[in-house]
Every structure is written in C-alpha cells, then in structure tokens.
Nucleic acid binder design. Structure first.
Lengths: 214, 214
DNA sequence: TGTACATCAGTGAACGCGCGTTCACTGATGTAC
DNA sequence: TGTACATCAGTGAACGCGCGTTCACTGATGTAC
C-alpha cells in the first residue's frame, strides 16, 4: 500500500503499512512544527499528519501529548547543543587568557546565534514541561556544561577570582538567555542585523567585565 | 434584573441590564486570568464569564481576541511599572556614587521581584502581540525609563564612562530579564528562596561590575 | 413634564475549528512447531 | 520449508471540549420635541 506524505513540500511515500520508525518520525515532525510555530504548534494531530499517519498511531509511541512535547523539547535542546558545539570547535583551545576569554564569548555567541536563527526551536527547548530538567553535568557537551568549562578556564587563566566563581554560570546564562529572549520574542525582535549585533556585543562585553573585574 | 457573577469565589450581582464599565471589567478579568494562567488563559469567553457577561458582549468593546489581549498586556505592563515605581521610592535619591549604584540595583530588584511574585502577569506583559511596543521614553515611570535614569545617574556620579553608556540599558535589561525568565518559567523555577536570592545577588553584582568596570 | 423613537449594550443560540483522546477494527510481522 | 496464530502497529470513526466569532434579537438609555 502506498501512502503519500507531504513533508516540506516534497512528496514522499511509504510502501508498507507499518512505518518502521514512527517514534523518531514523529519527533522529527514535531521539531519541524516547533521550528516554524514554536512549542504551541507541536500537536499530536499535526505531527501525525506530517509523518503521514493517523493521530491514533502516535499513541503507540507516546503516552499522551505531553510525552511527545517532552521528546520534541529534548530534540530541540540537542540541536542547541550541537549548534553550540559546532561553533565552539571554531575557537582556539589554548589555556592563556586570550583564548579563555574567547571561549567564554563563544559560548554566548553560539547560544544567541542559535536562538536568532531558530527561534521556534529555541523556545521549545525551554518550554516548561512536566519532565525534570537533567542536572547540569559539567564537561558534557550541553550548553550549560560548555559555559561551566569556559568559566573554569577563566579561573585557570587567572582572569577570574576563585571567590567569584560560584553562581557565575547562572549569572552569565541569565544574561545571555535574556538577550536571546528579547531579541527573538520580546520587544527587541525587529532590530536590524546591525543593531542586533551591536546589542549582542555590548551585552557580552558587560558580562565579561562583570565576571573578570571586581 | 439581577445577574449573579462569581469573581474569586465571591458572589457579586449586577442590577442593571447594562454593565456600565464593561470594557474595564473585561480588562480586569483578563488580568486576573493572566495572573493565574498566563497569557494563554486570557480568552474572550473566560474574561466575559468572569465579568458576568455573554462572550458576545465583549465584541462591543474589543474588535477581536487580539485587541483584548493587547489591552490586558498593557495592563500587565502598567502593574510592572507601578510595582517598580513603588520599590524605587524606597531607595535614596542622592546623586553620590553609593546612591546611584543603589538605584541601579533597585531597578533590577524591583523588576525581578515583580516577575517572581506575579509570573503570569510578567509573562503577559512581554507576550508578543500585534501592537508595536511604545518607544522608550526616558524619564517616564516605565521600567525602561527607570533603568535609563539609573544608568544616567551612574554616569553623572562618575561610576561609568560616557563611552560605555550606549546600549548599556539593553545589556542590563537583557541580563535582568533573562534572570526573571529562568527563575519563573525556566529551569531555575523551583529554586528555594535562599538559592534564588543568591542567584539574584550574583547576577546584579555581575551587571554592576560589568557596567562600571572596564 | 411627558412621550416617541433612535441608539446603545446587552442576550441566546449557533457555526465551524482544531484539539486530545478512545474505541473497535484490521493489515503486517514474526515465531513456534 | 510451510503454516497457524499471537502480537504488533497501524486505520477510521467518533466523542467532548473550549475556543473565536456571527446572527437575529431585546432590554435599557437618552434625547428631540
């Protein structure tokens, strides 16, 4: 049996009654919906339709709508992590002051760049769900881990006092997160590329000085 | 004709067919809905019900749902302004360095305090709407105006270089806004009061140093 | 001061929508013998 | 190697929900004379 499915304007086809990998297909479909419409666009019905399947079929793989949204949220977070990881690989890994500073700045830039280019996924990643957020694991390729590593690098390079290290990751994260939010869904959306870049620079500079000065 | 209306568990009554001030009643009802359920809870039907009126009646006062939400958003923003204004009145108005710093810190504290105590209204205030955000008017009792004044005070007190003044308001706002978001609807919700206060202090310190150092 | 009547601000019923979810079902798959 | 049959993973129809919105209406108000 042929079932025709329309994804991104491309007509695909399914040759078997069984899908094969419906769970992942639904998550992928959910991510596409989130990309263009944010977390609110991630519905069982829409994801099933995008995957070329009946809404009922989704219930073979997810307990309910919240479970699908949880999975899509994880997917969105993974994409943020990947994007940041890719960006981080472009900056020097040295342990002198200059490189340490560059790495901190890169975590911020990578984060904001993802938010600006994929606002729907960004907001989906931070949608409040039932699932507990996984505890921060320094050293792992999570955004939070990368930030922690960069801050440790600052201390190691002698740019930041050890006594200023506690909670620095939350202060820096807050600042960068707020910028991402204001730029994408807040009153600062609609800024030109030039204005946006200026604000980003000003913010990152404030954060750097705030963490290394004092 | 008596119509019985239930608001906050208290049974009120309306003695005339005409409401008298339905527009404001709907905005107030919308604000109460936003308070407990965020912007998504602000529906024509729910607001009308809370005001003791038929959904149709709302259309005498608002073109459509978006118009009601716009009005409720303004109301939420006004409450944020009032709360911050009240808080600012408790800090000294001197023009020496210490007072200037205290005023900057107070804008941040007032903002976050409102977000934490009224998360639903806070998020409603920053909901993306059709209406253009009013341009920042320095000197007026808007949150943005208060922040701008505080930063100007920093420059006047000699704590901040003039060359660092541009965009400082957006950098500071971002940082404080992000903290508010993470604490209320993000992964930092659920922190204890003690932990929360520690993060707020750490963030405000980073911002102060970031703006006055360098 | 009284009254006819236009206008204003509500009511009540209904519409279509997309949603989550459930039910009884059926086609496809894979495994025991 | 072939086949009976349990199990798995879909279908199709339907439910109830709350939503925004529209329609024809009616009660209340206020104003011209």
């Amino acid at each position: 049996m042929f079932t025709h499915v329309n994804i991104l304007g491309v007509s695909l086809s399914r040759t078997s009654y069984h899908h094969g990998d419906l769970r992942n297909a639904l998550i992928e479909a959910g991510a596409e919906l989130a990309e263009s419409g944010g977390p609110a666009a991630v519905t069982i019905r829409a994801a099933a339709a995008k995957a070329g399947v009946t809404p009922t079929a989704a219930y073979r793989h997810f307990a309910d709508h919240a479970a699908l949204l949880d999975a899509v949220r994880d997917q969105a977070m993974n994409r943020l992590s990947s994007a940041m990881g890719r960006y981080m690989r472009t900056v020097p890994k040295g342990d002198d002051a200059q490189d340490a500073m560059a790495r901190l700045r890169a975590t911020g830039r990578g984060y904001i760049q993802f938010a600006v280019s994929e606002p729907g996924l960004f907001h989906t990643a931070f949608t409040t769900g039932t699932k507990k957020m996984q505890p921060p694991r320094p050293g792992t390729p999570s955004p939070f881990g990368m930030l922690n590593d960069a801050l440790d690098g600052l201390v190691a390079a002698g740019l930041m006092h050890e006594r200023d290290r506690p909670l620095a990751e939350l202060a820096a994260w807050s600042a960068v997160h707020g910028l991402a939010v204001l730029l994408t869904e807040g009153p600062l959306r609609g800024l030109s590329r030039r204005e946006r870049d200026a604000v980003i620079d000003r913010s990152l500079t404030m954060i750097e000085r705030g963490l290394t000065g004092g």
